[in-house]
């Protein structure tokens, strides 16, 4: 899942899905809780996000590519991550000693996040904390963060995909 088009060949089949989020129509989450209380497991906004979050839930490996802003995901990726809450229930569980939402049929996943831009050390540190929090709420069994410049994003994506294919 990338917030910018990637000029590389990515296999698209039943095992691998690629989403260029910048080309999709994805509105902001309205915070209506409809996906928890009215139509559980389904977002009431019927746009492209509804094709993406079921794939996130089913995947045992995810690769997210996002520009960083103030130490967090920039707008495009953050919009999609907020729209992915139908994969959770409203109900709370105790997980890793903290209160978190119960997950629906979400496969635990190895997450790799390529964070790009002109990133300061402080932003890197904030982002590491953020992804550690995401791990609890987004079912990451493990995670790796790669900080890079925008020009190196595609090389980094190729490297990760080659690693996955081995």
């Amino acid at each position: 899942m990338s917030d910018k088009p990637l000029d590389i060949s990515i296999r698209q089949d039943s095992e691998t899905r690629y989403f260029d989020l910048s080309s999709l129509k994805i509105a902001n989450c309205m915070g209506c809780f409809g996906c928890w209380t009215k139509t559980p497991g389904k977002c009431v906004i019927r746009d492209d996000a509804t094709k993406v979050y079921p794939c996130i839930a089913k995947s045992d490996k995810v690769l997210y590519v996002s520009r960083l802003k103030y130490g967090g995901y920039d707008t495009i990726m953050k919009t999609m991550l907020e729209r992915a809450i139908p994969v959770q229930q409203a109900f709370i569980r105790i997980h890793n000693g903290e209160t978190h939402h119960v997950q629906r049929a979400v496969v635990p996943k190895e997450a790799t996040i390529i964070a790009y831009g002109n990133i300061s050390d402080e932003e890197k540190d904030i982002f590491r904390q953020l992804v550690a929090r995401n791990a609890s709420n987004m079912s990451f069994s493990s995670h790796e963060i790669i900080f890079t410049t925008e020009s190196m994003v595609e090389d980094q994506v190729k490297r990760i995909l080659e690693k996955w294919e081995k």
Binding site: F33, W36, T37, K38, P40, G41, K42, T50, Y53, P54, A57, P86, V87, Q89, A90, F91, V102, R104, A105, V106
Partner: peptide
């Protein structure tokens, strides 16, 4: 949350579905 669901006629069991987009 159970009471929240009741406002829309949704039961606790329905809210606890494991299905995402019907799958």
């Amino acid at each position: 949350w159970k009471r929240f669901g009741q406002k829309f006629g949704t039961t606790k069991e329905q809210m606890q579905t494991m299905e995402i987009e019907g799958e």
